[in-house]
């Protein structure tokens, strides 16, 4: 609880915490939506905000507010799948490379670097194009997870490298602790905050990727996500029809989400770095 109290002293943490709660509640609200998000024209098209239609309706005759709840929910699902699965890759590669060192390290880092220098976006686009028909939320999450771990594996590796040089590693090894137990019991607690902050960044990256792919029309555009909402708003000319409520809803929601995720990760990693923590918390 001390930790949380210290973190809340940072206005960025407090703000992003609030915004994320707001978005989470929106996502949960989707379960109470009176409309099926896949059905068009359950209301009249192109309405401005009113009492019955809180944020108006789209050119597809869908209530924008309830559509947005589904969009937030689905975008979050994709990002959680992508983030969680890619963490498994990143943690395994980072820890093994960092702890084993030498040949293992070199081979693993070679693959990581290869993934880093390749024009990943083009390759993801190529894959997305080929499996477009089967692009469910889970598949999209997995596709992004497969490509999103390289940088974080490097970050985790360097953390493990520095832990390996510490005294307690030698003590543990000399007193007969096995490699697996050492890594899981001694290193993981140190690396957990770092893994958490890479997770947040990776989630933001996955949501951004999903939006870009959706706007290019490379995902299943019938499933409402923040990206596909914007896709429809642009392709149905919301801009020229003056349908600002439709166009701005996904834009504002995604901007809020991105800023909140980024600020959360920045304030957590600043908190983890003792030098900046002392500055902020006040030298306790």
């Amino acid at each position: 609880m001390r930790v949380l109290r210290d973190l809340f002293k940072d206005y960025r943490f407090a703000l992003s915490f609030l915004v994320l709660w707001f978005l989470l509640i929106m996502a949960v609200l989707s379960a109470f939506s009176p409309y099926d998000p896949l059905i068009w024209f359950h209301g009249p098209p192109n309405l401005k905000p009113s009492v019955t239609y809180f944020l108006g309706t789209s050119a597809k005759g869908q209530d924008i507010f309830w559509q947005a709840t589904y969009a937030v929910r689905n975008s979050l699902i994709i990002s959680v799948i992508a983030g969680a699965v890619s963490r498994v890759f990143a943690v395994l590669v980072g820890m093994i490379a960092g702890y084993r060192g030498r040949g293992t390290d070199r081979v693993l880092m070679f693959f990581t670097d290869t993934l880093l220098v390749m024009p990943l976006f083009l390759i993801i686009v190529m894959l997305a194009l080929l499996v477009r028909e089967r692009m469910t939320l889970v598949n999209l999450g997995l596709l992004l997870a497969f490509f999103g771990w390289a940088w974080d594996a490097r970050v985790i590796r360097s953390q493990i490298l520095s832990l390996r040089e510490r005294e307690f590693t030698k003590t543990a090894v000399l007193s007969g602790t096995g490699t697996l137990k050492l890594v899981l019991k001694e290193y993981l607690p140190f690396a957990t905050p770092l893994i958490f902050s890479t997770l947040i960044n990776n989630m933001a990256w996955a949501i951004g990727m999903e939006m870009t792919l959706a706007i290019l029309g490379l995902t299943d555009i019938n499933i409402p996500t923040l990206g596909t909402m914007l896709h429809w708003a642009i392709s149905k000319q919301a801009l020229f029809l003056g349908q600002w409520n439709w166009l701005l809803t996904p834009v504002v929601l995604s901007v809020l989400l991105f800023i909140a995720l980024y600020w959360l990760s920045v304030s957590i990693s600043e908190y983890l770095d003792p030098r900046t923590r002392v500055q902020r918390v006040g030298g306790k």
């Binding site: 933001a204 949501i207 939006m211 870009t212 800023i259 995720l261 980024y262 600020w263 920045v266």
Partner: peptide
């Protein structure tokens, strides 16, 4: 801090 997290497209 505000500009950085925005996805390029937006």
């Amino acid at each position: 801090m505000v500009v950085r997290p925005l996805p390029y497209y937006i």
